[in-house]
Amino acid sequence: MKLLLRLEQPTSGRVLLDGRDVFTLDGTAFREYRTKVQAVFQDPWSSLNPRMRVRDTIAEALVVNRPVSAAQAQARVDEVLQQVGLAPDAGGRYPHEFSGGQRQRIALASALASSPELIVLDEPVSALDVSIRAQVMNLLKDLQAQQPLAYLLVAHNLATVRYIAHRTAVMYLGKIVEYAPTASLFRAPRHPYTKALFAAALPANPDAPREDFVLAGEVPSPIDPPTGCAFHPRCPFAMADCARVAPVAREVDAGHLVSCHLY
């Protein structure tokens, strides 16, 4: 995710946006990229300035990346505030005068201001309360319905993923182990790690079957991952090959890829 936002350099491989390598962009092309890709983080404070009025924070996000007049910027601010469901007078207030859910809306409004193509959502609702969480998740869906907009959602809550994502990639120690249309993944998770995640998730239902597939051991350090399949030391199905050979992705169902020697 940090790679995508160009906060860090890759050690190998490439990041493409609309087919262009993001790390070779410079000057105008890079500024263009910055308007096309925006981010919203778990903690809305990371994109808000406590001493600036909301209106100015959003306008700044816009002006930094694009040559626009003050009047144009103000008009756009009103527009995005309305899109995220905040009253027009919200622009004149400071971030601390809002609730957590409202602050997350403001962060979303500043991300939207430059009409991005992609918004990286890093745990956007995990710090919010249940009642506010639903408001923000619905807003995310509505915004996507109104305009051409792609989300890269980073989340650990499976219910959130199921509600928002069209496709889902499951990562373990920096590698994608399973990648599928969300419906297919939830219907039949294949990778043992994905299965463990599903078993460990606690559905909000006291009568849910208890699949006690409790993983032993701790998560190893990503700096020095295990050989072969990185999951093999914790995998209940590990075979001799798993410790030696890294599995490659195989398609097990339409668009459903799994990297595991069992498939």
Binding site: V130, S131, R133, A134, M137, N157, L158, A159, T160, R162, Y163, A183, F186, F198, A201, P203, A204, N205, A208
Partner: peptide, 9 residues
């Protein structure tokens, strides 16, 4: 308001 992991809404 709780999203469910066992059904799609």
């Amino acid at each position: 308001a709780v999203p469910r992991m066992d059904e799609s809404v």
